[in-house]
Amino acid sequence: MTNPIHPEAEALLRPRARLITAPDTRAETLRALAAEATGLIVRAQLPDDILDHAPHLRGIVRHGVGLDFVPIPAATARGIPVANLPGSNTQAVAEHVFAALFHLRRKLASLDAILRDRGWIAAKPLASDLDEVGGSTLGILGTGEIGRRVAGIAKAGFGMRVLGHSRSNRNLDGLIEPVDRETLFSESDAVVVACPLNDATRGLVDARLIRRMRGRAVLINVARGPIVEAAALAEALMAGRIAGAALDVFEIQPLPGDHPLLACPNLLLTPHVAGTSATSLRVMGRGAAEEMLRILAGAPPRNLVNPEALANLSRRTGRAERGEPAVR
């Protein structure tokens, strides 16, 4: 396991496997531990060549949803099934989006700090210039499960107009008005980035799109760091051309202490925790354990993301070493 998982999940696995948790997530550490692993439960970025160092591997389970942590083409070529856990942290991420939106819009932390430092009279007038969330326009880039959950809360809870853009613009459940990217950025009061990271979305939110945003608009990224060009966002924030942003993900993680984003005003930074809560960790942990147990038993996982690997699954299972498997 690249990181610890929920105790209930470990309890499910322990009768069937020797559990080893990596002491850190450096590439060399993960390569070394993969040498004897029968299964991998993944919460951190795997090195691209991890499978070259894992001759006994039967399967990989992503503790979560995003698949950019796993070298799926290499796993498929080797007949190694990969599973993830769709929907396991959708509510947690959606709640984080609105927590960030209220932080940026209603500025409660700033009001609290000013009241404590400078007093009631200094703090109270600041609320007069704050925009309400209700009735404003929310743009969602990426209308998958998370995007649709955010849209449902926005529309039913706050009466927001919801715009959305994705490759297909299907399955929008009547909640989302499909628009092109340019319209989404130019007409939204808040833009939420919730699309997967791939070749098409890397650097997608660039200076050109950010320049289309309204002066009082905010940007929230709960997807992956490389989707948003950090330099372009920092420049817009420093120049005051947008009202604020909230980033939970970054191109380099952990975020270096001298990163330019740390100097930006009106920017909420969190350490990739949008999908993390006590509830979601339990759900993801148990889900990952159950999928891994299926794989170790020679059965396909329920949420198989590379079905092409099934053709080789039986052959690989038959070759696997007998005895107590090691899940790492």
Rank of each mutant, 00 (worst) to 15 (best):
G142D: 09
R106Q: 13
T137I: 14
G147Y: 04
A113S: 15
E95F: 05
K107H: 07
L115S: 08
R78M: 14
E132A: 10
D117I: 00
K124C: 06
G134R: 11
L101G: 03
I80Q: 06
L104M: 03
L108V: 12
A99Q: 09
W120C: 01
G135T: 01
P86Q: 10
G144R: 12
S128R: 13
H96T: 03
K124W: 07
L126C: 08
F102S: 11
G144E: 09
H103C: 04
T90P: 05
L104K: 00
D117S: 03
G119H: 07
I140S: 01
S110H: 15
A92G: 01
A127Y: 08
E132Y: 10
W120R: 01
G142Q: 11
A109D: 15
Q91G: 01
V93R: 06
T143R: 10
G87V: 14
A109V: 14
G79Y: 08
P86V: 15
R105C: 04
L85G: 11
A122R: 05
Q91L: 04
K124V: 13
E132K: 10
A74V: 07
R148T: 11
S88M: 02
A83I: 00
A151W: 12
S136G: 07
I80C: 10
L115Y: 02
V82M: 13
I80R: 10
G147T: 01
L141R: 03
E95R: 03
I146E: 14
G119A: 10
L108P: 04
G142L: 09
H103G: 11
V93K: 05
E145W: 06
I140R: 00
L130H: 08
Q91P: 01
A127N: 04
K124A: 13
H96L: 02
T76E: 09
V133M: 08
S128E: 13
I114D: 14
A123D: 06
G135P: 07
A100G: 11
V82L: 13
L101V: 04
T76N: 06
F102K: 09
K107Q: 15
P81R: 09
L101D: 01
H96R: 03
R148I: 15
L101M: 08
G144W: 12
R149S: 12
A77P: 09
G139C: 02
D112F: 00
T90D: 06
P125D: 15
A123L: 04
G144H: 09
E132P: 09
R148D: 07
T143H: 10
